[in-house]
Design a protein around this nucleic acid. Structure first.
Lengths: 247, 247
DNA sequence: CGTCGATTTGAGTTAGCTCAAAAGAGGTGG
DNA sequence: CCACCTCTTTTGAGCTAACTCAAATCGACG
């Protein structure tokens, strides 16, 4: 299942995240400038991409796989603060040390840009700056939605919310048809889910079992989750049935 | 205590948030363009500035006072997702409906910009676009720090974290000297604090009492909080003693 | 002085946590 | 192909931090 570097097409034009990533709005000339400062890196599931506090001399887009941003307290309590799916952006222009641990949750390929030249490009290329602003605003919305989940939802609702988010992200990818039954690939261990949801892994497991018992989800192996009725899932998540907000 | 509109200087050059707000980097010509599309609005404590879902034809900076962004579930559970202090920005260019309730927590003055012209300015003025990106990234960091608070901290740590944040914001304003004793003005009711922290107001009250009993804070009336030892507060918050992160 | 909202305090309940053990699910090597 | 080992997940039993419901106190203002 590992994606080797050799199999990655180096050409932006054929890139799988071409029209969703930070480069989405670039014209071909701008893409050329990006090609000059970019390089790919791949990581195996479980590997740490960057440690919080480390010097970080690149920013990057997730090309394939899943990564997580997590914060850790001295006594070991951990909270995931970002779930990075393909096309998501990592790193902050204008800052040279990482604020969070970045960990590959699955095998991962990232398209990295050397930071200094990228910062220059941001300043000179409104297409990139604008897209970056838009993506940052989206992330801020996602973070705020997550604050509601963390602060006010029950364990069951938290699990349902996480599944709902993955369903929604998935749907916007293979986009279009709003099917009522959906099968998703769950790229997180119970522990990662607990880190995301501010729960213990035992509670996550218990609530997954409960949702299964109640027919909200069907587990197909460890990684596949079938959602027979997406609206039902949304109800369980405590969201409006209209499934989240329009931009 | 109400700030009347008349007392607000309409001239950007003398604006109290001139070098921290979205207009921080603007030159005098750019300020002139902003002056053309700006107007002030003031609100009394408790008033709602915008309802979630409403059409919003402006964006704005908080000039004085405090406002909050909150999300509400159908059954009434509420989570504050943003605390807006002077110089903070409200509204999202490129979106015309509000995603959150915006409520004046204290008497409030906002510097509003008509949305369409402002969006045009963002596109045409790198000084504004860049500053907006920077501010959005800062807000994202704040939101992520808050996710750790909501997901993993105890009630006592949550309270201490909130006080620490206000202390830190205050310090960066009257900036410079890192005093060990600080007095802060607490602009939130117990209920607002509970909305922010994902607690009940009873728990907030109990933990405030506990922190007072233990000498971490001294209450001076209802609105003033004396922190005799800021480092002690930081410890109680569970943060590294080095008081948060460098840019 | 009385009223109304905000805050504090009390008492009992419970959702989610902790600690502990059992059951799966892959891998690896004989 | 099976036995073994390790890592993940599930399940159980008891505990506790925070919640709920209720009442008392405080403070500002007319």
């Amino acid at each position: 299942m590992t994606v080797s570097l050799a199999s990655i097409n180096q050409d932006c034009v054929d890139c799988p995240i071409r029209h969703r990533a930070v480069c989405a709005r670039c014209d071909s000339e701008e893409l050329e400038r990006l090609e000059e400062i970019k390089y790919y890196r791949s990581f195996e599931a479980g590997q740490t991409v960057v440690w919080s506090g480390d010097k970080m001399d690149f920013v990057a887009s997730v090309v394939s796989g899943v990564a997580s941003l997590t914060q850790t307290m001295e006594d070991g309590r951990r909270q995931m603060v970002g779930l990075l799916l393909p096309s998501d952006f990592v790193g902050r222009p204008g800052r040279d040390h990482a604020h969070y641990d970045v960990v590959a949750t699955t095998d991962l390929v990232m398209c990295c840009f050397r930071k200094r030249p990228f910062e220059r490009l941001v300043d000179e290329t409104p297409h990139i700056a604008g897209r970056l602003l838009q993506m940052t605003l989206d992330e801020l919305d996602a973070a705020r939605e997550w604050m509601l989940v963390l602060g006010r939802k029950t364990a069951r609702e938290k699990i349902a919310s996480l599944l709902a988010i993955i369903v929604r992200r998935d749907a916007s990818l293979h986009f279009g048809e709003a099917k009522s039954e959906v099968t998703i690939d769950l790229p997180l261990t119970r522990e990662a889910m607990s880190d995301y949801l501010g729960l213990t892994l035992e509670t996550v497991s218990r609530q997954m079992s409960a949702l299964k018992r109640d027919g909200v989800i069907v587990l197909d192996g460890k990684r596949k989750v079938v959602v027979p009725d997406v609206d039902r899932l949304m109800e369980e998540a405590g969201d409006d049935s209209d499934g989240g907000v329009l931009s």
